[in-house]
Amino acid sequence: MIRVLVVDDDPLVREGLGFILATADDIEVVGQAADGAEGVERARSLTPDVVLMDLRMPGTDGREATAELMSLPHPPKVLALTTFDTDAHVISVLDAGASGYLLKETPPPEIIDAVRDTAGGGTVLSARHARVLLDKYSENGVNARRNRAGAALDRLTGREREVVRCVAEGLTNAEAAERLHCSPGTVKAHLASIFTRLGIDNRVRLAILGHDAGILDGPDGEPGPAE
């Protein structure tokens, strides 16, 4: 079962999300919280797998609460909830450690899929914000970052580099498996190996590393030359 904690200052939103998630056989809503501070305390005691975290709340907001959760010995995955997907707010919570974000207007089946993807180590991020996020990390020192990132990817096998390319393109494990003609479990195993080799703990940072190395510039997952 995927254990979920819902953090939102609107009781109707909390109840609505609880109702939606309760329709999934593999998801259990273990608790709710009305603000970020309460969310952190409840996460400490309930140890959820995924926290659905509202961005805008009085007191401790979603970004601050996410940063506190990431400092726990065994932090949960955080999926941010937002009404307006403005770049500043989305990038802020991703910088704090969230695995992605979800618009509150998202259809119920997609909310359930997003929770499952997040629990499995996936990143829930629109293509537009994936590009904004990657561009943010590529504004200065492009060549130096590319050299460092390229040296890091040189430690990987050819197959692992293909997986990095898939992650940089924003593909899920299932989509990467279809492209690479293997099972999602094999992709997940490759990711575990990649994270260990590179000292990276989530897909967003791996996507940034791949982007810095220019892995999307060259064919077949090979980094293109630095300019």
Rank of each mutant, 00 (worst) to 15 (best):
M1C: 04
R3E: 11
R3Y: 02
V6L: 01
D10C: 01
L12I: 07
G16V: 07
L17V: 09
F19V: 10
I20R: 09
T23S: 12
A24V: 02
A24W: 07
D26A: 07
D26Q: 09
I27C: 01
E28Q: 08
V30I: 14
D35L: 11
E38P: 10
E41I: 14
E41V: 15
A43F: 12
S45W: 03
T47L: 13
T47S: 13
P48R: 01
V50N: 05
L55C: 13
T60P: 06
R63A: 15
E64M: 14
T66K: 12
T66A: 10
T66I: 11
L69I: 11
M70W: 05
L72S: 10
L72G: 04
L72K: 10
P73R: 06
P76G: 08
K77N: 12
K77Y: 05
L79F: 04
L79R: 12
D87P: 15
D87E: 14
A88M: 07
A88Q: 12
A88P: 00
I91P: 00
I91T: 07
V93C: 02
D95I: 00
D95V: 00
G97N: 03
S99T: 07
L102K: 04
P108A: 07
I112P: 03
V115H: 07
D117Y: 06
T118A: 03
G120E: 02
G121H: 05
G122R: 07
S126G: 14
S126N: 12
R128L: 06
R128K: 15
A130I: 00
L133E: 11
G141K: 04
G141Y: 02
A144M: 04
A144P: 02
A144I: 13
R145E: 01
R146F: 04
A149V: 11
L156S: 05
L156Y: 10
T157I: 03
V167C: 03
G170V: 05
L171G: 05
N173E: 09
N173Y: 13
A176N: 03
A176W: 06
L180Y: 14
H181T: 10
C182E: 13
P184Q: 08
G185A: 09
T186G: 04
K188R: 15
L191K: 03
A192H: 08
A192K: 15
I194V: 14
T196Q: 13
R197M: 02
L198H: 08
L198A: 10
D201I: 09
R203E: 15
R203P: 13
V204R: 11
A207E: 06
A207W: 08
I208L: 08
I208Q: 13
I208P: 10
H211Y: 14
D212V: 02
L216T: 13
L216F: 11
D217M: 13
G218R: 01
G221R: 07
E222P: 00
P223Y: 15
G224I: 05
P225C: 09
